[in-house]
Simulated assay, not measured.
Amino acid sequence: MGSVFFAGNSFAQQRMPERSTSELGISVGGITYKGEVAPRYRFLSNRPALMVFYKRDFSRALSWRGSLLLGRINAQDEQYQKKVPLAEYRKATVNTSVLELSGGIDYNFLDYYDFRRRTRWTPYFTVGAAAVVYNNKTTAEDPNLIYGQPDNEPYKTGFAFAVPVGAGVKYALSHHLNLGFEFGARAMFTDDFDNLSTKNEQVMNRHDNDWYFYNGISISYTFYRLNCPQ
């Protein structure tokens, strides 16, 4: 009888209640775009950007995710004049301020909160949906190449939807602190991001939507909640 009591008591002490986690963090990195003025991804075109994010797990592998991204994009035809003939003709420059609000899901390939592991880390994949507000200033040698607003005004405020897809790695610095790195691409549902006129197809492809990219390093804090068994 006593052995049964001690065995049951030992089992109860060893069995850890399930825990749920939430994560609040900040990421600093770079943002760049790919479109008419920047037909290829170019790492050196990255400009500073800042992201604040919140994550909450709903299984060992999956987490809900919400984030706010703020950055400024710069692209110049001058960087591609030797490779793209249209760039030499347009001589356009695009400066765009971006504010992105997104939500999605992270999939962790390893059990990040398994504290039996001596080193806790995991690669992860993320996908979601985003709403983007942007303020654009485009200049070109020929003003008629700019989007057809009154008097060919170079400024344009726009709204668009995008699909963020990315991958990253995070590493546990301590019980609560996490260090991460992430690279993500945003496929946009518009070709007006660079503010070039769709009337002149000789200098742009209106069938190829614009993209922008974010890569950054993050630090985050994990909050734990113990879910006591019923």
Rank of each mutant, 00 (worst) to 15 (best):
V37N: 13
A38F: 15
A38Y: 14
F43E: 15
L44F: 08
S45M: 11
R47K: 08
P48C: 03
A49Q: 06
L50E: 07
M51N: 14
F53C: 05
R56S: 12
R56L: 10
F58G: 11
L62H: 14
W64Q: 04
W64H: 04
W64Y: 08
W64F: 08
S67F: 07
L68G: 06
L70K: 08
G71K: 00
I73R: 03
A75F: 08
A75Y: 09
Q76Y: 11
E78T: 04
Q79V: 09
K82L: 05
A87F: 04
E88H: 10
E88P: 08
R90Q: 15
A92G: 14
T93E: 14
T93Y: 12
T93F: 13
V94Y: 13
T96C: 02
T96M: 10
S97M: 14
S97V: 14
S97G: 15
V98Q: 03
E100Y: 06
S102T: 08
G103Q: 01
G103C: 10
D106F: 06
F109Y: 08
L110G: 00
Y113S: 13
Y113Q: 12
D114H: 04
R117G: 00
R118V: 06
R120V: 09
W121S: 05
W121K: 03
W121P: 01
P123W: 01
Y124R: 05
F125T: 09
V127P: 07
G128M: 03
A130K: 03
V132W: 03
V133T: 04
Y134F: 12
N136D: 07
K137C: 12
T138E: 15
A140E: 09
E141Q: 01
E141I: 04
P143I: 14
P143W: 10
L145A: 14
L145F: 11
I146D: 12
Y147I: 11
G148S: 15
P150Q: 04
D151N: 01
E153Q: 07
E153H: 13
E153T: 02
Y155K: 10
Y155G: 08
Y155W: 09
K156I: 10
T157C: 02
F159S: 10
A160P: 00
V163G: 03
V163L: 14
V163R: 05
G166S: 12
G166P: 07
A167N: 01
A167F: 12
G168A: 04
K170E: 02
K170F: 00
